[in-house]
């Protein structure tokens, strides 16, 4: 693997499978009485989070600690950004203390690319703006493979705010690379221009998207989108695009329902569906630790010569 993990766009399908296979072994560590291996002992990992996130940050932190790394959490409040230290300066100050890796979550697309150019440390993208969230897509793929044994040939429906979602972009890139039949659906105001060029089918009909689907992935809807006039109301959104039990009935009998979290119950997904027998949402969270351990392990070796 390269020095950094900035996005699925930079991974070959071999590298993706490598992560998934390694994550199987990493999962087992979480089932032992002593949930620790010495592999990253003495390595320092900085979790630099410019956006609040309990879930992803905790997941990375547990993954780092299970590998015996020293972790450092920096949560940058919006106010200190306004006080004027640029991302570049913050990174260079941290770099001066020689961390081995920096896990970055930031509101601007491309922020991790800026760090990767400036820093010698290895950079892991934990979500940059609307661009990518590669570890989420990897844990989603791991979850799918746990249930379906494979990814190629599956019909995967991804539904929601496609335009603003980094989870969508990463998942589309990964699933199409591994040969899945990907359908995306959402309000026409929220469809990114040219998305068909990524090899997905686009439809505004959720019913069409979920018909005979093996996997249904729901994306979060944010309240602010109503200010931008992207859709009129949450109520109308739920009626047209929400995942109800009736809609789930159109998918295959062994469908799995996924969501990157946090969920808006009653907006993009009905409560009964979120808690129902097809939902694997909590497994995704558990798998997140194993997948992130795999990423940390694979990235931690010395840099491959080009």
């Amino acid at each position: 693997m390269k020095k950094d993990l900035l996005g699925i766009a930079d991974l070959s399908s071999d590298e993706i499978y490598r992560v998934l296979d390694t994550a199987v072994a990493m999962r087992e560590i979480g089932e032992r009485p002593i949930k620790k291996v010495p592999t990253l002992r003495g390595k320092t990992v900085v979790n630099l989070f410019y956006e609040p996130s309990t879930r992803t940050r905790t997941s990375f932190e547990i993954a780092e600690k299970r590998l015996s790394a020293d972790t450092l959490n920096i949560a940058v409040a919006a106010s200190s950004v306004l006080k004027g230290e640029t991302l570049a300066d913050t990174a260079m100050n941290i770099e001066a203390m020689a961390p081995d890796m920096i896990v970055l979550r930031h509101a601007s697309s491309g922020a991790c690319h800026l760090l990767a150019r400036i820093c010698r440390s290895k950079i892991i993208n934990a979500g940059d703006g609307m661009h990518e969230h590669p570890t989420q897509a990897l844990l989603d793929a791991f979850t799918i493979r746990q249930h379906k044994r494979r990814i190629d040939g599956l019909k995967v429906a991804i539904i929601g705010d496609l335009l603003h979602s980094r989870v969508l972009r990463s998942n589309v890139l990964l699933l199409t690379k591994l040969g899945a039949d990907v359908w995306v659906s959402g309000p026409p105001t929220l469809v990114p221009p040219g998305i068909e060029r990524l090899g997905v089918r686009v439809t505004t009909s959720v019913d069409e998207a979920v018909a005979d689907a093996d996997v249904i992935m729901m994306l979060r809807i944010q309240q602010e989108r109503m200010q931008g006039a992207f859709f009129p109301s949450l109520r109308e959104y739920y009626n047209v695009f929400g995942l109800t039990e009736e809609r789930v009935g159109r998918a295959r009998g062994d469908v799995i329902i996924m969501h990157p979290g946090p969920m808006n119950r009653g907006v993009e997904i009905a409560s009964e569906v979120a808690d129902g027998p097809y939902s694997v949402i909590l497994e995704q969270v558990a798998n997140g630790v194993a997948v992130r351990m795999a990423v940390l392990y694979l990235l931690a070796g010395e840099v491959e010569a080009d």
Partner: peptide, 25 residues
Amino acid sequence: LDITLYRDDLMRHAVGAQPVVKSTD
């Protein structure tokens, strides 16, 4: 038992990908 994660020569390779980790059972 897979001992890859306990090796004392990890992180010391000049070149090359990390060794493959298999599961312990």
